Amino acid sequence: MPRWSFQRNVTSMRLMADLAVKHGLTLGAVLAGTDLDARQLGDPEYLVSGEQELQLIRNLVNGLGDPPGLGIEAGQCYHFTAFGVLGFAIISSPTPRAALDVALQYFDLTFAFTRFKVEDHGTQTRVIVDDDGVPDDVRAFLVARDFSCFVTVMRDLFAFEPALGALQFAFAAPSDIGEYARFFRVRPQFSTPHTMAVLDRALFEQRMPLANELALHAAREQCRKLLDGRRARSGLASKVRELLAARAADMPDMDVAARELCLTARTLRRRLLEEETTFAELRDEVRQTLAEEFLGGPRMSIEQIAARLGYAEATSFINAFRRWSGHTPHAFRLSRRSA
């Protein structure tokens, strides 16, 4: 399975769809083959797979003909607020170097298809982009997008301008490199062995203006729980979780889920038992994970959260949450605030 094949929320697909529409593509064209509609694209809590986002990106690149600088423009759509609780952890970090470490630790909460590696060499900090496993037809676009996203977030958060000392891209130079030079403020090299940026190490040791140890601890804990919830299952159970999470407000029953997975309900039940779980357990896991995320995030009323999770009444949600966690949703929210 590709390393980028992890579950993510729909935010990145929404940003890329908006970019496509800005350039003249229809929403229908950019969503073709993604199994997503406009309503789901507008739900910030909707979860999608890496494969779905990759299909949208192919639609974007092919539909626009992959003009020079498109990946750079795409990366500038991502500010730290797009990363939710991970963005909060980054901005609360003591130094830019520590912020990088946090981002790398919880990389599966980003929308990247590449992987970053950070190395310190003397007075330099080198950020190396690993594009292993990224499909060839969108490799240059995704490398440019992911790296310009990294620079955009740095410029959002840091009190100084993190000037690049050098910049290299492993892919061939586009027909026009003007957008690359303008955005990165350095003339990049192309067709090099690695994609890599060189930065001043001393600048990365300066204290961040919004550093806060308690806020960072709370944000990292939320990141960990969010990742645990997404990674807890594999095999068929993982597919069922993804299906249920994607339709939390109108969660399908086992018969509907089985049909969507091209199985009979009996086969679905048997195969889940082989993986030592049941459909009901997976449904509760999804609801608990999403409930904890909602309660720990931007303020939503208990009634709103209940509706998001498909409960007709808030009382039913409160009783279910008490059964899962031993606490009421209100008590859980207060404990998060105290932390």
Rank of each mutant, 00 (worst) to 15 (best):
residue 281 E to P: 08
residue 272 L to K: 14
residue 184 F to T: 09
residue 203 L to D: 09
residue 155 R to H: 11
residue 271 R to I: 03
residue 108 D to G: 02
residue 332 F to L: 11
residue 287 R to T: 08
residue 120 D to T: 12
residue 277 T to M: 07
residue 113 F to S: 12
residue 42 G to Q: 12
residue 43 D to W: 14
residue 281 E to C: 05
residue 220 R to G: 01
residue 19 L to C: 09
residue 337 R to C: 13
residue 49 S to A: 12
residue 17 A to E: 10
residue 147 F to Q: 05
residue 172 A to H: 06
residue 163 A to Q: 13
residue 294 F to W: 11
residue 78 Y to E: 14
residue 170 A to H: 06
residue 30 V to Y: 15
residue 93 S to V: 06
residue 80 F to D: 05
residue 213 E to T: 14
residue 221 E to A: 09
residue 239 K to F: 09
residue 228 D to G: 10
residue 217 H to A: 15
residue 215 A to N: 13
residue 125 T to N: 01
residue 78 Y to F: 13
residue 1 M to N: 06
residue 206 Q to L: 02
residue 259 R to W: 05
residue 62 N to R: 15
residue 54 L to R: 00
residue 130 D to W: 00
residue 158 F to C: 05
residue 166 A to T: 03
residue 323 R to A: 09
residue 287 R to L: 11
residue 168 Q to D: 08
residue 139 R to K: 15
residue 83 F to P: 08
residue 261 L to H: 02
residue 257 A to H: 11
residue 120 D to V: 06
residue 15 L to K: 07
residue 55 Q to D: 07
residue 337 R to P: 14
residue 197 A to H: 07
residue 276 E to W: 01
residue 91 I to H: 08
residue 288 Q to H: 05
residue 200 D to K: 04
residue 277 T to K: 10
residue 336 R to Y: 12
residue 277 T to Q: 07
residue 199 L to H: 06
residue 305 I to K: 06
residue 82 A to D: 01
residue 117 K to V: 06
residue 217 H to Y: 13
residue 299 R to W: 00
residue 167 L to W: 12
residue 258 A to N: 07
residue 300 M to C: 04
residue 87 G to D: 04
residue 315 T to S: 13
residue 18 D to T: 11
residue 211 A to M: 07
residue 232 A to K: 10
residue 106 Y to F: 15
residue 310 G to D: 07
residue 69 G to R: 01
residue 297 G to W: 08
residue 254 M to T: 09
residue 182 R to M: 09
residue 262 C to S: 11
residue 103 A to S: 09
residue 180 Y to S: 05
residue 196 M to G: 11
residue 18 D to C: 05
residue 244 L to R: 04
residue 162 P to L: 06
residue 44 P to Q: 04
residue 126 R to W: 10
residue 155 R to M: 02
residue 201 R to Y: 03
residue 262 C to G: 01
residue 306 A to C: 06
residue 118 V to N: 08
residue 1 M to R: 00
residue 335 S to G: 11
residue 175 S to P: 00
residue 237 A to V: 15
residue 194 H to Q: 10
residue 248 A to G: 09
residue 309 L to R: 04
residue 121 H to V: 03
residue 323 R to K: 10
residue 107 F to I: 05
residue 234 S to N: 12
residue 53 E to W: 02
residue 92 S to F: 03
residue 250 D to R: 10
residue 231 R to N: 11
residue 238 S to W: 07
residue 264 T to K: 06
